[in-house]
Design a protein around this nucleic acid. Structure first.
Lengths: 222, 222
DNA sequence: TAGATTGTTAATCGATTAACAATC
DNA sequence: TAGATTGTTAATCGATTAACAATC
């Protein structure tokens, strides 16, 4: 099997580039340089060109990139030229916010099934989608061939949910619970940890307060 | 000024370790090895020891770490032995979920002021906190000496909000809007991009579908 | 003492960046 | 042709990991 090693940071940046290109396209720009993309994404231009070079040649020397074509090419790389269905598990405040999140809709993500164990939530509907009990998860997710599961349940329930999703046949899990989940090697798992990012901030504030300079690698987030 | 270079990945892992230690403490364990912490956080034991070594010596050779002491020491490093007040800007679904997010409360984060520009939301209350109009942001944040701002407004409004927060004197910003924000160098800025993480998953699913193996660096998220 | 596990060094590995030939 | 900008190489930089002496 062909092996294709791409830094994960590259994938994350491509996602950022593509959204920036969408914005630039709306402003009517037709052509853009790696330098302008870099400024719009907070990285340097060599990084932009290097990231793209993993996947081919997309620009014209001396000219730059066609905004619309490059946007489309990146969306193709990310698998975003089709819509994706996902199962949402946990319909609390965060789950609710995710289900309605504009940033997901804009990029073609749909939550086609939603699960919770709260009797007050079960049976309610979000648009056309009925909230189902957790007991139905494996059956429904398997039947729908849903490939992506999103976990927004409390930390102590998350591992059980992950296990259920895996048994139901999902191939990828996005986990919002602040806990490390163990899943089989062939399952793609990513964690979004809201508190971790806030704690990075308090760490630096605390360091500054103590009179330390905390120079560090410039990175995407800065 | 003393310079203190710590990989940001180390800080993020410390946050994960400390939550795992809290869990372990509740289970009644008194002592733990770097190997067990590593398993609980999905990293290897050398990484755990290296991460800690930036800040001192916390264990006993041949024995391991005292769970409660290490938990506390890490919280101290992260600046989490005190409570933190933050300003929340944007009280839509996501802002609402963040304000009620258990993972923030547990770690001592309070949103002591909330802003939105929707007349229907202004004047409503969340617990004791009244939602104020954006026009009040700079005045209130400055008066309260709020050091952290959290942005959960649509992408096209985020830069203006960031500018306001900076003028109001915040030192750190956590941005949930899917856009790169430009802020002065001395402001700590981190982005939580919900869609980026989902798109990393679709990228790998798409690669697999096309018959590529996407071996890559094992990392914290996996 | 024997076994266990830390703290740290040095090697390895991988990602970022500078520089420049290619070329529009 | 002169100027601009890409694509790519090689150098640099930084983070991870293996290995082991220190030591409980």
């Amino acid at each position: 099997m062909r092996v294709f090693k791409i830094p994960e940071a590259t994938i994350m940046r491509l996602s950022v580039y593509s959204r920036f290109l969408t914005k630039v396209k709306k402003q009517g720009k037709v052509t853009i340089s790696s330098n302008d993309i870099a400024k719009g994404a907070g990285v340097n231009s060599a990084q932009v060109r290097k990231d793209l070079s993993f996947f081919g040649e997309f620009g014209t020397r001396g000219v730059g990139y066609n905004v619309e074509e490059l946007e489309w090419d990146i969306l193709k790389i990310l698998g975003l030229t089709v819509e994706w269905n996902a199962a949402l598990v946990g319909f609390g405040h965060l789950g609710h916010a995710l289900a309605l999140h504009r940033g997901f809709q804009e990029r073609g993500f749909n939550f086609t099934c939603i699960f919770d164990n709260d009797p007050l939530k079960i049976g309610t509907k979000l648009n056309d989608v009925e909230v189902l009990p957790l007991a139905k998860l494996e059956e429904v997710v398997a039947q729908n061939h849903t490939r992506i599961g999103v976990i927004s349940v409390p930390a102590d329930a998350a591992q059980d949910i992950a296990d259920s999703l895996v048994r139901a046949g999902v191939q990828a899990i996005l986990n919002f619970a602040p806990v490390y989940l163990s899943v089989p090697q062939d399952i793609e798992l990513r964690n979004v940890d809201l508190a971790v990012n806030l704690e990075v901030l308090t760490f630096y504030l605390e360091m500054h307060r103590q009179g330390y300079s905390t120079e560090r690698t410039p990175n995407l987030a800065k």
